[in-house]
Design a protein around this nucleic acid. Sequence first.
DNA 1: GAAGAAATTCGAAGCGCTTCGACCACCAGG
DNA 2: CCTGGTGGTCGAAGCGCTTCGAATTTCTTC
Lengths: 341, 341
Amino acid sequence: MATIADVAQAAGVSTSTVSYVLSGRRPISPATRARVEASIAELGYRPHAGARALAGRHTNVLALAAPLRSDINVPVIMQFVTSVVTAARSYDHDVLLLTNDEGSDGLERVAGSAMVDALIVMDIESDDARIPVLRRLRQPAVLIGLPNRPGGISCVDLDFAAAGYTAVAHLAEHGHRTVGLIGPPPAVYQRGTSYATRFLAGFEDAVDEFGLASVSRPCEPTFDGALSCVNLIDEQLPGVSSLVVHNEAALSPLLGILRASGRRVPEDVSVVAICPQDVALGLPIGMTSVDIPGHQLGALAVERVMSLLRGERGAETRLLAPCLAERDSCADAPSEPGPAR
Amino acid sequence: MATIADVAQAAGVSTSTVSYVLSGRRPISPATRARVEASIAELGYRPHAGARALAGRHTNVLALAAPLRSDINVPVIMQFVTSVVTAARSYDHDVLLLTNDEGSDGLERVAGSAMVDALIVMDIESDDARIPVLRRLRQPAVLIGLPNRPGGISCVDLDFAAAGYTAVAHLAEHGHRTVGLIGPPPAVYQRGTSYATRFLAGFEDAVDEFGLASVSRPCEPTFDGALSCVNLIDEQLPGVSSLVVHNEAALSPLLGILRASGRRVPEDVSVVAICPQDVALGLPIGMTSVDIPGHQLGALAVERVMSLLRGERGAETRLLAPCLAERDSCADAPSEPGPAR
DNA sequence: GAAGAAATTCGAAGCGCTTCGACCACCAGG
DNA sequence: CCTGGTGGTCGAAGCGCTTCGAATTTCTTC
């Protein structure tokens, strides 16, 4: 491979000059610049990343710690990952992918060995053990998610509490008096993954405020899981007229289950989904949904990282307001059986 | 951060000695080794990755080019990515994630700037433009997929032709005389992604060999896509008794559609799915399926990379034999309407 | 036409690590 | 007692790049 010295020689300048045309940190005359650029192109020169990192004290690489388990909403994760990589590239950065099961060690490793300039961490638990670790690292970090005590670390997430509230409010406005929540898998709650509990809190706030009757259940991401979840809800809340589904994998099974039990959506049961838009649109009927803006959040996290890298200190935590899109899965509540008016 | 010089000083040895205890490339007396290791632990020393890459001429990082679009089988991709990262870690390597829409440029960039020691490329098209690029890189590469002309580059994949054949053969053995193929989305074919065509070829071979009547259609990964695909198959092959589904996203919708049209699985229609095992198990009925062994393939790709890195030159392309798991979605063909015997 | 300012460019000193040849001490064999 | 190994350690030379201070050239301005 060609080195900067080769380029310098070919262009008849010193290596520092080449370096400066590359970095733009000092003025270079148009003539020299042109000559250098020509040599670079001719030799197919690419700066050696390691040498750069050593001398320049930054790598242009971001670490992304993603939950690569399968119990979780795979498409959502994928959206995050995709958008982080894409956004990072737009800032001329690359992404080193870590799995969450390396835990804190992975973060310490890549940060300590100066492999990355900053870290983005997903799937944050309420009391996440990685937070103290992150805090003592020399690299900036951004969380996608919201722990109990971020303690100065930037966070970016959907406002899941508001999302839960919004979903219920929408149903209440349609006259529903009963609502069931089909939640994420039990494992998600057990881990203390914060979005699940935040959503639930918002859900329950709205239920109280609007005076609805409700029941909420976690739900395994399989057909059988969805089935037993629906059964439980039916049992505890017979004739339930609306459902909030905060579990992507349960969505498609759910619709099948409702149809099989003779209930039409939205005439007999209204359903609000919490999911990315493309999932909401790929189902038999367009789902009224609160969007999980994976792309937006990933991009936002990267922007935040970049501003930290620039030395700026911005607002610490940024929760995106939920956005409910009305589609075809919600209708007014069926008039209650009872005294006719 | 502590440097190797700090460690050396603390342990009262030279930096080269520290380096040798770290790399094990020269014998070190137990006493010195112990002292050095103590200093390392005490100082929390971690070698600087950039400096290492510069002096040692390797980075312990692999590039993984993954198709981060959403038209594709997201869970399968995720399996690959997960297993590649995990396997790489077991060899003390990290993974730099590239998106396929950077195309050849991304590969050239990370390879040319010596960010990675080797590359793993997914979602290979029959005549993939990245192959010539890969060939001229100084780093070894492994493809997950199979192009027409690998030209010396290692490939690892499921034997999709055999998978197609196996699926049909299984149905034929159950006495089915008609079979419909619900294929991947049109975009996959249009890109010339090789697994789709290889599968189709195997499918058609078996159809010919067993003398079945067949029709195959690509299928958009939405409910509507599945619906129109089924309709087309019904139209061209009325009373079709078996279906092969090489499209994960279509699976769940399909079952709903069949039920809605009054057909039971497997009594009226047998279905063989091509998908990862957990998908096959998460549906209303356990699907008889040909497994897409994402975890195995990812691990295999990494192993191959490692052996190339060691300078070994092994078998070039390795196609995993398909493995059909019988579950509950296949039954003998309903006896044909016709002259009673 | 000379002095000072401004615009460019150069040289050299690292950045932290690996590796090669050298060196030292010590032991076996002759 | 000297020679030849051998296990263990050291010193120094890079690896390819950035960056700082200094040097050089060019342009102004009196």
